[in-house]
Each structure stands twice: as structure tokens, then as C-alpha cells.
Nucleic acid binder design. Structure first.
Length: 567
RNA sequence: CGGGGUGUAGCGCAGUUGGUAGCGCGCGUGGUUUGGGACCAUGAGGUCGGGAGUUCGAGCCUCUCCACCCCGACCA
């Protein structure tokens, strides 16, 4: 490729209003161009990277017996009605009517389409297990796209779906795909990827994993143990309980003046915050008359995601309780009997005694609260947010928090979709069963941007060789020099036989060429100049290390073959 | 959806109390340069996000809509 003809210009100025490193570098180096909020065109250089990532994914999917298909982006409402998701998914699914007034949608995922494809096509146990996959455009009208390609509304994704006759077979296949994913991330040059269980956070959950790239620009908070293998998304992470065992005392009312918050009470009574019971009130959207009151140990905070999951609702908000009969700042779980409230207790309160909670009237709290004796509660669940430094639920060592980008996920779906859509296969005994499914996704663009997030320096992108748009940047300096010009042209023609060469044939000053080669992140730069030609040599610079070597022109092919070899 | 911010040339930006639209980079042409974003000359490029209003006159003031960015909510 001649750089003078490459579509996509490079910019010296840092783009305005851009915060993510990958976003800035991809724009500046001429890889992407924004079309709308969360919608981008990939320029030729980015498309080359994308195709290389896709091909690696394709090879690994084929290795686990995947069969590539292509399902539609546009689908009729009917197949999504069968799973119930036409109505259960919110505005992130794009819906529209076609010219015949038929309700249609744009695919954000393809479980329904996949079952549609396979039902009455895959009919017998004898055909299982089988897996189909596609690399295709997904449309998700995200509420808030951000950070360039990291979170977009339209993107290329590899999604795969497997079918099995029994759980053992699914589990075995799931593990094969898990290993394939590890190979994919390694091969595309992604370094800090971890797989975390997204099942229930405790060890042993193996129903789903998400693959998280650990970079600062990540939007997921991950709780990790540096000592053992515990790792979990903040949404479901747990920590080891560290309750102080307070003495059992008799229940008494306590005058607490105007102290309302845990901080004020701890100050007033000179007690550890752990001795208090905090009450947090939530409203469920759409249910005006109900109030959720979550009780939790005074020093802890409620994890909304966990609470929502427990309640099985989509949306909760911290609510104003002024007209509910609850006394703000004095809410307590002792003698609290109201029809319009749903009480939830965090595990940190289970079986505890000697605690302090609100007395449900102004200026008073109860002390000596014994959860077993004084509170009629049976629903103790984990709704607590984990903070950095809390102890690992497995090994007891301190936990740390890291940011991550979800670059892939794998799920055991079970028979949810096959039963909803009535897909069956014949078994040896003549019976019909709904096959068990697994599904497996990887976002291609997110991988591309994620790699830029973790692989760049102050000069620009540093592409891993396996996915670099070109491997060799042929860079003549002094194009006015006839010999440089002639030899460079000749080299371009020759080297292009064996390597992917980006030839900087522009008649411009040296600084621009050298800077562009670094900004674009091409792994190997070959400089041809009067200086190098005087020795019949080329000067090679390795982008990643900055290492420079002089190579005789006669040995150039051989040297480049070594330098561009993909590990 | 809530909060904050920004919209002026391809990119980055300036534009004073309201008075003829500017700078740097980039782009075209001619020339001089030549190993880390050279220089001279010259040229092209604008519905100042859209609409309405105030005014003799609006990039600037008012209202309104829109787009984009950031934080949060949301994320099959």
C-alpha cells in the first residue's frame, strides 16, 4: 500500500472532547471516523486490523468444530415473541415497521435467530453437539455510548451458539470454548485478560464467564484477590464477613436527639459504626405504593445491582419517604410492621446482637437489638457493596479493585430458548428433548480498541504483530535523491511479494514520516536514505522496543522474515 | 432518563462594550530546503449547529430545537 493513496489522514492535534486513549489514538492515526454518537466508520487501516482479529477468532472457532453461518441483522418480531424478549428488552433494541407495516427489529444478539436456523434442521441427537457461529454487525441503541470504539451502538461481533443433549456434554464443550477464548486473546496480542465467573461470585459457580481486559479505561469494577484465584464483578462480588461480636443486652429505647445519620450517631454515642443498623429506602419504578427498606450494617453500603437481582426488578431508586409513614433517620427493623414496605436484610446482620437501630419515631433509637430475638426476619441476603481492602471470601486476604473492559463472554443457556421456541431433537430411545444451549460472544471492535488501550506509548499505537494493519513501514527519506527513490520503489515491489508493506512514498520531510510510522504503530520500520545507502544498508527500527539495526540490503528479506514472524 | 459542558474552515482554536469572518495546522500551485512535524510566495476552503426573536445592524443578546462530549442511571 502506498501511503500517499491511503484513505485516512493523520492529525497532529489531539482531538477535542476525547478522553479515552484508544479513542484519541485511533482518531489521530486515521483509523476511525465518527458518523454519529457511538457509530463509527472503520478506515482501511482499521478494517485490516479488524479482519485480522476476525480471522484469528474464525480459526479458533473452527478448531472447536464451529460452523460459520450468517444470520440476518433484520428480523421479524415473531421469532422474538416466542422467547418473550420482544417486549422484555428495553429501548436498546431497535424496532421499526417495514413498508408493509410489519413489526421488525435489528438484531442485538441472535439466540432466537440461531434456534430458528437450527430447529427442524438439526433434528437428531446424532447431529449433536454442534456449534454455529457468525461474525456480524450487531445493533444496540445504547443509552450512553462512550470512549470511541469501547462502547458503541453498532459493532462487529462474533457470536456462537452450541447445542447439546445433556449437561455433561455442554460442560465439556464449554470448557473447550473457554480454552479457545484464552488462545484467541493470546494470539491477538491482548495481555491482561482475565476470565471471571459471572454466575454468583462465589467460587464454584460455572454458569457463565466474562473475559475482562484490565485497563484503566474499563467501565466495569472488578474485585480481585491477589493471593488466590477469587475474582468477580463488583455487581456480584462478596467479601468475608468481619462482624464484631457485641454483647447481648436487653432491648431499650435510647434518646438520640437529632442524630440521624450513622456518622452522627456514631459520634454522639461514641460507638463503632459496625454496631448500627443502617436503613436505606428504595422505590421500585412502576410500583408507587411500595417501599423497599434495606437494612445493612452501619459501615457498609448497599449494592443496588445485588438488591435488584434479589428483588427481580429492573429499576430501583433511592426514594423520598416523606409520605410513607417511615421516619427519616430513625427507621429501624424492630417493631416495624407496615403493609407498604418490603424489608430486606443484609447477611452482615444475620444472628447479630447488641446492635443499634432506629425506633421508628423522632429522636429515638433502640439499643441492644438482637436480630434473633427482636426482629422477625427470615430473608437475610447478600446486598452489600464490596470495598477495596475487605477480605477475600475464599482465602481471607485483602481484595483489590481493578477496572476492566468486557471483551468476551460465555454462557450456559440451558433450554431456555429451545423450550420457548419448541426446538426438539430425537433421542436414541425415540423421545424428543429440547437441546441444551451454550452461547459465546466476542466484540471485535472492542478488542481492537482494547488492545490500543493497553498497547501504546507517548508516540502512538504499538500494534501486536498478529493484528497490525501492515507489518513493514517502508520509509524512504530524501525522496529528492534519485538513488533513494529508485531503490525504494524497487524494494517496495520486491518486499510486497513477501510482506505486508506500507510504503511512505510521500515527498515530505523526514520528521513527518517518522512520526506517522510511530503514531500508526507499524511493528517494523525500514528507513532507506542516502546515509544508509552509502553502506548499501537499510535502517530497521522495531516499534515496540525502539531498537535500531542496520541491515545489508542483500539480507533485508531474510531479516524482515525473522522480525515479522508471529509468535 | 437526570446532572454538567461544548458547537465558528478538514483538524485544533481566537473572536473585546453588538458594527464587513480570523489564527495555526492541513489542502492546491510555484520555488528554496532535506534524518524528528522546514521556509518563501500564492490560492482554495464558512448558512458562525438549526429556527424564531430583539436591534438600523447579531458569531456575540433572548427563546427554542438539535448534535456531540463528560459523570450517573441503563447495558439481551
Amino acid at each position: 500500500m502506498r501511503l500517499s493513496k491511503l484513505v485516512g489522514e493523520r492529525f497532529k492535534d489531539i482531538p477535542a472532547g476525547v478522553s479515552a486513549k484508544s479513542h484519541s489514538l485511533l482518531l489521530r492515526a486515521g483509523y476511525i471516523k465518527q458518523v454519529a454518537n457511538g457509530v463509527y466508520s472503520l478506515l482501511p487501516s482499521a478494517q485490516r486490523v479488524s479482519l485480522k482479529i476476525q480471522n484469528i477468532i474464525r480459526e479458533e472457532m473452527n478448531k472447536v468444530d464451529g460452523q460459520e453461518v450468517l444470520m440476518p441483522v433484520m428480523m421479524p418480531r415473531e421469532i422474538w415473541d416466542k422467547s418473550g424478549r420482544y417486549t422484555s428488552i428495553g429501548q436498546e433494541m431497535v424496532r421499526f415497521k417495514d413498508r408493509n407495516n410489519h413489526e421488525m427489529l435489528l438484531g442485538m444478539t441472535h439466540e432466537e435467530a440461531c434456534v430458528h436456523l437450527c430447529q427442524n434442521t438439526v433434528k437428531s441427537y446424532d447431529q449433536l453437539p454442534c456449534m454455529i457461529y457468525q461474525i456480524q454487525t450487531k445493533i444496540r441503541d445504547e443509552a450512553r455510548p462512550r470512549a470511541g470504539l469501547l462502547r458503541v451502538r453498532e459493532f462487529t461481533m462474533k457470536d456462537a451458539y452450541s447445542f447439546h443433549t445433556n449437561n455433561d456434554d455442554l460442560n465439556e464443550y464449554y470448557n473447550r470454548v473457554y480454552k479457545a477464548y484464552e488462545r484467541i486473546y493470546k494470539r491477538i496480542g491482548m495481555k491482561n485478560v482475565i476470565a471471571i465467573s459471572s454466575d454468583n461470585g462465589m467460587m464454584g459457580g460455572d454458569g457463565a464467564h466474562e473475559f475482562q481486559l484490565l485497563v484503566e479505561a474499563g467501565e466495569d469494577n472488578l474485585i480481585l484477590c491477589e493471593n488466590c484465584d477469587y475474582k468477580a464483578n463488583m455487581e456480584i462480588a462478596t467479601s468475608k464477613l468481619d462482624n464484631a461480636n457485641f454483647d447481648d443486652e436487653k432491648l431499650e429505647e435510647l434518646f438520640t436527639e437529632n442524630a440521624k445519620t450513622i456518622d452522627e450517631l456514631a459520634m454522639l454515642l461514641k460507638k463503632d459504626k459496625k454496631q448500627f443498623i443502617k436503613a436505606v429506602c428504595y422505590a421500585i419504578s412502576g410500583e408507587k405504593d411500595k417501599v423497599i427498606v434495606a437494612f445493612i450494617r452501619g459501615d457498609k453500603e448497599v449494592n443496588d445491582a445485588k438488591l435488584k437481582k434479589y428483588l427481580g426488578v429492573n429499576d430501583i431508586n433511592v426514594t423520598d419517604i416523606s409520605d410513607t409513614g417511615l421516619v427519616k433517620g430513625n427507621i429501624g427493623c424492630v417493631n416495624l410492621e407496615m403493609d407498604n414496605i418490603i424489608k430486606v436484610f443484609d447477611l452482615s446482620l444475620k444472628d447479630q446482637k447488641g446492635l443499634i437501630c432506629g425506633a421508628n419515631k423522632e429522636e429515638y433509637h433502640y439499643c441492644g437489638v438482637n436480630m434473633l430475638r427482636d426482629v422477625k426476619a427470615d430473608n437475610f441476603v447478600d446486598i452489600a457493596k464490596v470495598n477495596e481492602g475487605e477480605l477475600c471470601p475464599v482465602c481471607g486476604k485483602p481484595l483489590i479493585i481493578r477496572k476492566g473492559i468486557e471483551v468476551g463472554n460465555i454462557f450456559k443457556l440451558g433450554t431456555h430458548y429451545t423450550s420457548a421456541m419448541e426446538m426438539t431433537v430425537s433421542m436414541p430411545d425415540g423421545s424428543q428433548i429440547n437441546p441444551i444451549m451454550g452461547c459465546y460472544g466476542i466484540g471485535v471492535g472492542r478488542c481492537l480498541a482494547g488492545i490500543v488501550e493497553e498497547s501504546s506509548d507517548d508516540k502512538g499505537i504499538v500494534w501486536p504483530k498478529a493484528i497490525a494493519p501492515w507489518l513493514v513501514y517502508l520509509c524512504p527519506l530524501r525522496n529528492d535523491n534519485a538513488e533513494v527513490e529508485e531503490i525504494s520503489e524497487k524494494l517496495y515491489n520486491e518486499l510486497s511479494q513477501n510482506f505486508e508493506v506500507l510504503y511512505d512514498d510521500r515527498k515530505i520531510s523526514a520528521g513527518i514520516k517518522l512520526t506517522d510510522s510511530e503514531l500508526m504503530g507499524i511493528p517494523v520500520r525500514v528507513v532507506i536514505s542516502p546515509r544508509s545507502l552509502s553502506q548499501s544498508q537499510a535502517e530497521i527500527t522495531i516499534r515496540e522496543s525502539g531498537e535500531k539495526i542496520m541491515v545489508d540490503l542483500a539480507n533485508l528479506n531474510e531479516t524482515l522474515a525473522k522480525l515479522t514472524m508471529i509468535d
